[in-house]
Simulated assay, not measured.
Amino acid sequence: MAREFTAQMSMYRGRWRLYVVLLNTAERWPEYGFDRALPVPTLTERVNALSTLGFEPVPGAAWQWTEDRDNLDDPASSVVLIAAIRARSWTGVAA
């Protein structure tokens, strides 16, 4: 059975990046850069990026958007949007 992880997408240094969170490990988190700020990567682009990293969305999972701030102590700080989805190691089997 494939292990499940959280994949997240956020803006970093003016460009969207997608990464897979690997908790309780010293391994480097797999990351994919979209090399642009706009437009926001499409669903297809996100799935392709996950595939490039060796992952796929868990069947039935949907992207969830949350809002954060650059400076957590300042409510007037710039907003940071983070998208997340449950992902699993790519099985190579069509669903």
Rank of each mutant, 00 (worst) to 15 (best):
A2D: 10
E4A: 12
E4R: 12
T6W: 07
T6V: 14
T6G: 07
T6I: 14
A7T: 03
M9A: 11
M9E: 06
M9N: 04
S10N: 09
M11E: 15
M11N: 14
M11A: 12
M11V: 15
Y12G: 10
R13K: 12
R13N: 14
R13A: 13
G14E: 11
R15S: 15
W16R: 03
W16E: 03
R17T: 08
R17L: 14
L18H: 02
L18G: 04
Y19P: 01
V20Y: 01
V20G: 02
V21W: 01
L22P: 01
L22N: 06
L23M: 07
L23I: 05
N24K: 12
N24H: 08
A26N: 12
A26R: 13
R28P: 05
R28F: 01
W29A: 09
P30I: 02
E31G: 04
E31N: 00
G33W: 01
G33C: 08
D35A: 08
D35S: 10
D35M: 02
D35G: 05
R36T: 02
A37Q: 13
A37E: 08
L38V: 05
L38E: 12
P39R: 07
V40Y: 04
V40N: 00
V40D: 01
V40H: 02
P41K: 03
L43T: 09
L43R: 10
L43F: 06
T44E: 12
T44M: 10
R46F: 01
V47M: 01
V47N: 08
V47A: 05
L50F: 03
S51I: 02
S51V: 02
T52C: 14
L53A: 04
L53V: 06
G54S: 08
G54R: 04
G54K: 05
E56G: 05
V58D: 01
V58H: 01
P59N: 09
P59H: 04
G60F: 04
A62R: 11
W63V: 12
W63S: 10
W63T: 08
Q64M: 11
W65V: 14
W65D: 12
T66Y: 03
T66A: 12
E67T: 08
E67G: 07
D68N: 12
R69Q: 14
R69A: 08
D70L: 14
D70R: 11
D70H: 05
N71T: 13
N71P: 00
N71M: 14
L72V: 15
L72F: 13
L72S: 15
D73L: 15
D74K: 07
P75C: 09
P75V: 12
P75R: 11
A76D: 10
S77W: 04
S78E: 13
V79E: 14
V80K: 14
V80N: 15
A83F: 01
A84S: 15
I85E: 02
R88C: 13
R88I: 03
S89D: 15
S89C: 11
T91W: 03
T91D: 05
G92E: 04
V93C: 07
